[in-house]
Computed example of a mutant assay.
Amino acid sequence: MTVTFGEEITLLSLDDQSGAVRERQACQWAVAGGIVLELVLAGRVTVDDGRITVADTAPTGVRLLDDRLGMIDAWAAGKRRPPKVTEWLTKDKGKALDAALESLAERGLVGREQRTVLGMFPVRRFPETDGTVERALRARLEDVVLRGAEPDDRSAGLVALLHGAKLHRLAFPDLPRREVAPRMREISEGQWAGASVRKAIREMEAAMTAVALVTMRS
């Protein structure tokens, strides 16, 4: 099963028992950024000098990505120049996380529960129903970050998103940030991939870093 960057970050964020999203504010930025990076690597959008442009509106076949592609295309169409990718992330962050949660539920990786808090406030939870994908994901992250394995494009992209959004604890909850951040930064800045992939990852990591600073100050 192929799981998108946005879904992977969402899986890492979910508490396995309660189904609540941890570090929601930072996570929603990272999920929105992960969807954009996925579209960049699929050749559907470009991000250059922090600005986003739709290059190809052909469907990818993944609803989570295709819905966002259509939204970005419609949103950017009325702009005089390519808009900043951080503007899109600001606009889409909450909706992107909800869409990733629904996508995981449709795939059968999480369940859906709705509870009422204090008798009046509805709260949705997404408890894990199939832990195999998350376990494989965490094993992959451990291989490249803790054991020094050579990252592939997707592993490096995920690490860069997590590092840029300061979500080290989601990936490695039992380790202090200082033990994993240097290696995650090394992977993000590495020369292991082709130039176009490196550029895409660095553009999105820069966007994540920018919005992480806003999140920390708010």
Rank of each mutant, 00 (worst) to 15 (best):
T2V: 12
F5C: 04
E7P: 11
L14A: 10
D15F: 06
D15L: 09
D16Y: 07
Q17M: 11
Q17P: 00
S18R: 15
S18Y: 08
S18Q: 13
A20I: 08
R22Q: 15
E23V: 02
Q25H: 13
Q25M: 06
Q25S: 13
Q28W: 03
Q28C: 12
A30M: 02
A30K: 00
G33L: 13
V36E: 05
L37N: 03
G43S: 09
V47D: 05
D48Y: 07
G50M: 05
G50Q: 06
G50S: 05
I52M: 01
I52K: 01
T53F: 02
T53Y: 02
A55H: 04
T57I: 12
A58D: 13
V62Y: 09
R63L: 14
R63K: 14
L64P: 05
D67Q: 11
I72Q: 03
A77N: 07
K79D: 09
R80V: 07
R80L: 13
P82M: 07
V85T: 11
W88L: 15
L89R: 00
T90P: 00
K93L: 02
K95V: 04
L97F: 04
D98V: 11
A100G: 04
L101N: 06
E102G: 02
S103G: 05
R107P: 01
V110F: 06
T116D: 03
G119S: 02
M120Q: 14
F121H: 11
P122S: 11
V133Q: 14
E134F: 01
L137F: 08
L137G: 04
L137T: 08
L137C: 04
R138V: 13
D143T: 03
V144H: 03
A149K: 10
A149V: 07
E150K: 14
L158C: 03
L158A: 07
V159M: 07
A160W: 01
L161V: 06
L162A: 04
G164L: 02
L170M: 11
A171N: 07
A171Q: 06
F172R: 04
D174T: 14
D174Q: 15
L175W: 10
P176Q: 12
R178W: 10
E179F: 10
E179D: 14
A181M: 05
R183W: 00
R183Y: 00
R185W: 05
R185L: 14
E186N: 08
I187L: 14
G190Q: 02
Q191S: 13
W192P: 00
W192A: 13
W192M: 06
V197I: 14
K199C: 01
I201H: 07
I201E: 02
E203V: 01
E203G: 05
E203Y: 02
M204F: 08
A206T: 12
M208Q: 11
M208W: 01
A212I: 00
V214P: 00
V214Q: 11
R217K: 13
R217V: 13
